[in-house]
Design a protein around this nucleic acid. Structure first.
Length: 107
DNA sequence: GTTATGACCCAAA
DNA sequence: GTTTGGGCCATAA
């Protein structure tokens, strides 16, 4: 086994997120068998190469809000992509996780 | 090998 | 609603 299977696992899971649906960092961490690695999910996404096929825009924090990245205007892009897929944002700029959160094995 | 940083989460004040 | 403190571990230098 390689040592970077964690990143592969995370990216693999995010790739499985259906269109028009979102997942939280904690969710991905749990699905990756790492309940306390929510931070690493962000670390992996940050280091993702462009065009890796990973819909990072479908990953939000537990508050259903867009992650506050240090720099870059990707947050605006993320919201645009989400709305483009049918995900609606609240007046507070939050996503209704009750409706749009991805539910694996149950749909 | 070590150190520093961080696209997070949770609990408490 | 905001702020503070603790924890977890991958990535980069």
């Amino acid at each position: 086994m390689t040592g970077n299977d964690a990143a592969l696992k995370i990216t693999s899971l995010i790739k499985k997120i259906p269109r028009g649906r979102v997942a939280t960092y904690g969710q991905i961490a749990i699905l990756a068998n790492r309940p306390r690695n929510s931070r690493q999910v962000g670390a992996v996404l940050k280091s993702l190469p462009a065009g890796s096929g990973v819909p990072w825009h479908r990953v939000v924090n537990s508050h259903g809000r867009i992650s506050d990245r240090s720099h870059s205007a990707s947050e605006g892009l993320q919201r645009c992509l989400l709305e483009s897929e049918g995900v609606e944002l609240n007046e507070t700029g939050r996503i209704d996780l009750n409706v749009f959160q991805w539910r694996p094995r149950r749909r």
